[in-house]
Each structure stands twice: as structure tokens, then as C-alpha cells.
């Protein structure tokens, strides 16, 4: 779901390929047989160009999302209201940086460099999860992000641990292990607020009001409007559809909100006993489209912040590379 944009644009075209050669068809059949048999595809294995291309985009979008995702929460490190919360938040944001590193690493096994990927992001040519284009004006937003955004992410990430591409699957296993505390700490923040003062309860409700619908949008467009799902499912890059995951998320999360004593901001939300699911209201996809297009509240700011960090850090990266070169020249055996 950090790769929502991948699925949503029917106008987006895959890299054009020449008409397939006969040996490619045989290889493709063998490749699909391996995928069907739940074998993992590893970096040097033959793979269809479309598979490679799709993976690079999905993995890199996921990586970009982690890196940009450090910003809305990093925003509250210096103002965390207790030392324990400060420590937890630093650890969480650190994890997110780490996840970005794992994922860029996985993408690099497919023949693209981290530099190229970062250049694409900073040039505004790459997508990342739209959820991080929303601001965190209050401390309760830190709780809401952990509870709802990480909650939604986990829903998508667990199936990805069984993705057909080995390095991505392994990165996801690592990420899922680390992610479980992220959601729990967010919910614990919400619980503390909900049980706190009137001002804290109001803060928590107000954050839920702002994050609920964007969290639902994280799962991407409705299956009917999602062009790439079928191919991704065939290649076992995507294991469940957008709507399936979104429904599961709603079913899990509504009782959690009820436990908090907070109201989900959806007047149409109701339990459908026959289906054993929550029915929920229509999502406003125009907001989603606008945010994806760059017109969300924080799009420009997020990219600008990342650009500035990258630019400000250039002299540091250059110095490290220059020092390493000097070391090699001084003593070829060392460095």
C-alpha cells in the first residue's frame, strides 16, 4: 500500500518491450512455474522485464515512503511530552530510516543504484505514500499515525513477507518484526490520551477525525479502478487486493476505536451482521488524487525538507569519499 500509486494510474504505462522472443516465452513459462510453486526469485535469476520494472517501482516507492515518513513524526521528537515517549519516538523514527535502507538495498539488487532512486524522489519523479503529505500539528497525531498508519502498513506488509522476490520478502520479514512495536506504541499514546484530561481526549478525537479517511486511502483505489493488480497478483508481488485489505483494516480498527471511547468520523459506519463486516461510507477520491498529484497540505514541504538535507549533506558525503580515496592511494593494502 505504500505502492498505492503503482496500482492507481490506468494511464501509466509499463516500460515498452520489444515483441517477445521464443526463448523468452519458454523462460517466462519456467519463471511463472517457479512463482506458482512458491519458489523465491533471487537477484541473478532470469525474470521478465515487466517483473523487474514493477518490483523496482514498488520497492522504491516503499523505501521513499519510509524515508519521507520519518519527517511527520520526527517533527515531534524535540517536543515529546515525556522522556519515555521521546526515547520511543526516536527509536521508531530510527527504525523507519532503517526500513528505508533495507528497501533501497532490496531495490539495488535489481540493477538500480540508491543514488538514482534518491535523485528520482528529490526530482519529484517518484511516488511515495500519500499519507505522509499530511501534517502532525498535535502530539495526538503521533499516536494516530502509529495506530492507524502503521496499522494499515502492517496489514499490507505481512503478506509481502511471502512475496516472490527473495530480497524484498526478506526485507519485509525484518520490517514486520520491527513494525509491531510501532503500532502498539501509537495505540498506547491514544489510550493514555483517551483516559486523560478533557483537553487530551479532545486532542485524540480530533486526530482520529483527521487521520481516519487518509488511512483508508492508503490501501489505494478500489479494485475496480486498479489497473495493475491482476499482473501483480499473478507474479505474487501483491497477495491481496486493495479492497480486501481495506475491509480487514476497518474490521480490526473500529473495535479498537470503540475501546478508546472515540468516534470514527463516518456517519455511515455500521456492523453488517450477516456479512460479519463493517460497512463504511464512500471515500472521497478527489482528495486522494489531489494529494497524489502534489496538492496535499505538506507535499512541497516534505520534498523540500528532503532536498535540503540532501544538499546540506553533499559536502559530507563528498568528504567521506575523498578521504577513502586518499587512504587507498596512500596504502593500497588498506581501506
Amino acid at each position: 500500500m505504500y505502492s498505492q500509486a503503482l496500482d492507481q494510474a490506468p494511464r501509466e504505462r509499463e516500460a515498452p518491450s520489444a515483441s517477445p522472443r521464443p526463448e523468452d516465452s519458454a523462460r517466462e513459462a519456467a519463471f511463472l512455474a517457479r512463482v506458482d510453486a512458491e519458489e523465491k526469485i533471487e537477484p541473478k535469476d532470469w525474470m521478465p522485464e515487466g517483473y523487474r520494472h514493477t518490483l523496482i517501482r514498488q520497492i522504491s516507492q516503499h523505501a521513499h515512503s519510509e524515508i519521507v515518513g520519518m519527517l511527520p513524526e520526527g517533527n515531534w521528537i524535540t517536543r515529546a511530552p515525556s522522556l519515555q515517549r521521546k526515547a520511543i519516538l526516536i527509536a521508531k523514527v530510527q527504525d523507519e530510516g532503517g526500513h528505508g535502507a533495507y528497501l533501497y538495498g532490496a531495490a539495488e539488487t535489481l540493477g538500480i543504484s540508491r543514488e538514482q532512486l534518491i535523485d528520482q524522489l528529490l526530482a519529484g519523479k517518484a511516488k511515495y505514500s500519500s499519507i505522509f503529505n499530511y501534517p502532525t500539528p498535535t502530539w495526538a497525531d503521533v499516536g494516530a499515525i502509529g495506530w492507524l498508519v502503521d496499522g494499515a502498513a502492517i496489514m499490507n506488509q505481512i503478506p509481502l513477507c511471502r512475496c516472490s522476490y527473495g530480497p524484498y520478502a526478506r526485507a519485509m520479514v525484518r520490517i514486520c518484526k520491527e513494525e509491531s512495536f510501532h503500532q502498539r506504541q501509537g495505540y498506547e499514546i491514544m489510550l493514555t490520551l483517551a483516559r486523560g484530561t478533557a483537553a487530551q481526549r479532545r486532542m485524540a478525537q480530533e486526530a482520529l477525525d483527521r487521520w481516519w479517511w487518509p488511512a483508508l486511502m492508503m490501501f489505494g483505489p478500489s479494485d475496480a479502478d486498479s489497473a495493475h493488480t491482476a499482473q501483480s497478483v499473478r507474479w505474487k508481488i501483491k497477495r491481496f487486493t486493495n479492497d480486501e485489505l481495506r475491509q480487514k483494516f476497518v474490521d480490526f480498527t473500529v473495535p479498537q476505536a470503540q475501546f478508546l471511547g472515540l468516534a470514527v468520523p463516518d456517519p455511515e459506519l455500521r456492523w453488517d451482521d450477516a456479512a460479519q463486516h463493517y460497512r463504511f461510507g464512500a471515500i472521497d477520491w478527489t482528495e486522494f488524487q489531489q494529494v497524489l498529484r502534489g496538492n496535499g497540505p505538506c507535499n512541497r514541504e516534505r520534498l523540500q525538507t528532503r532536498r535540503r538535507a540532501h544538499e546540506d549533506g553533499r559536502w559530507v558525503r563528498e568528504a567521506a569519499a575523498a578521504y577513502a580515496l586518499k587512504q587507498r592511494e596512500r596504502s593500497p593494502a588498506a581501506a
Binding site: 535502507a101 533495507y102 538495498g105 532490496a106 539495488e108 540508491r114 526478506r170 526485507a171 525484518r174 567521506a320 569519499a321 578521504y323 577513502a324 587512504q327 581501506a335
Partner: peptide
């Protein structure tokens, strides 16, 4: 375990 980017072994 995976990979890292660095300019020297210590880093």
C-alpha cells in the same frame, strides 16, 4: 543480513 553503503570498512 543485507547491505550498507559506506566509504571505508570502519564506517
Amino acid at each position: 543480513a543485507g547491505s550498507v553503503h559506506a566509504t571505508d570498512a570502519r564506517m
